[in-house]
């Protein structure tokens, strides 16, 4: 389990990194935190001709409030996000989900951009980005574009990133201060990838539900936004029955696979359970925040 040989570049400027990417195209891998890529290299499941290590591109590492948005540089470590007061205050869902990403020594290195670009559908960050309607800034030599999280994820480990593009920034619009959020997941062991995870952000008062956003991880080729389940809450208001119906709807919306840890049936069942739990806890959190 030793990596195969590769050309190695450690640019210090984004332009330099993009130029290298342009040069190698598909043959190169961008090395960010490395917590997913390094195992693939060690297992020799990946043979890139070049690694473009962006860890020294300091301009990609920041976390700041700008206008109504929290903007996070792609190279920002999960650990930094975990201990950020700004994130705790403005993006409590991201804060909570971060503590579920592997373990602290993994989060020391793991980056937000890397996690999103890797696009493991069972990971927490893609579901959070989806449920918070995050925008991702994709930079290519001489230009950039911005895509929504919903557009970004294409399939298992696949995104809309072109071979010459790098994720440089993730933009979050904080949920209204009257809302509550929750990330519920079931994993076999503490720190494992979730069998199923459900993220929810709900803005409700009494039975009236202004907005509801729900997304599930681990139950399809991408994280899945549970829009018709959301609609049930907004249209029917939040009652025990509507929560139950939304949860049951969520289980219909997902497309899980079976693997050695859980069957598709069980994942569907867990989607229902966790959706209900996520809604209930988000509502509770909202009540606490408003109180």
């Amino acid at each position: 389990m030793k990596p195969p040989p590769f050309a190695y570049h450690a640019p210090t400027q984004l332009d330099e990194a993009l130029a290298l990417l342009e040069r190698y195209g598909d043959d190169a891998k961008v090395l960010a935190g490395g917590q997913s890529l390094m195992p693939l290299l060690n297992f020799r499941l990946s043979y890139p001709s070049a690694l473009i290590d962006i860890n020294r591109v300091a301009e990609l590492s920041y976390l700041r409030q700008e206008n109504d948005q929290v903007r996070i540089g792609a190279l920002t470590r999960q650990r930094t996000i975990e201990f950020s007061e700004l994130v705790r205050r403005q993006l409590p869902l991201l804060s909570e989900a971060t503590t579920l990403v592997g373990h602290l020594p993994i989060r020391t290195r793991g980056t937000i951009g890397g996690s999103l670009a890797h696009a493991d559908p069972a990971a927490e960050y893609p579901a959070v980005a989806l449920v918070l309607d995050a925008e991702l800034v994709l930079q290519r030599p001489g230009g950039q574009r911005s895509v929504s999280a919903e557009e970004f994820f294409v399939s298992y480990l696949t995104t809309v990133l072109a071979p010459n593009e790098i994720v440089t920034e993730i933009r979050f619009s904080p949920a209204p201060p009257t809302s509550g959020c929750a990330f519920e997941e079931v994993a076999r062991r503490h720190g494992d990838f979730a069998l199923v995870g459900v993220a929810g952000v709900i803005d409700a008062e009494g039975e009236q539900c202004r907005t509801a956003r729900l997304a599930a991880a681990g139950v399809g080729p991408t994280p899945i936004r549970l829009r018709t389940a959301e609609d049930i809450l907004v249209q029917e208001g939040v009652t025990e029955q509507s929560i139950q119906r939304a949860a049951a709807k969520a289980a219909e919306l997902v497309e899980p696979d079976s693997d050695i840890h859980a069957s598709a049936d069980f994942r569907r069942h867990l989607t229902e359970v966790l959706t209900r739990r996520a809604i209930q806890r988000a509502l509770e959190r909202g009540r606490e925040r408003r109180a």
């Binding site: 062991r189 503490h190 990838f193």
Partner: peptide, 16 residues
């Protein structure tokens, strides 16, 4: 073998 890594063969951690 489908359990060829420690992500798949689940040795309990302190939390379990």
């Amino acid at each position: 073998l489908l359990t060829g890594s420690l992500m798949d063969y689940l040795v309990p951690t302190a939390s379990e």
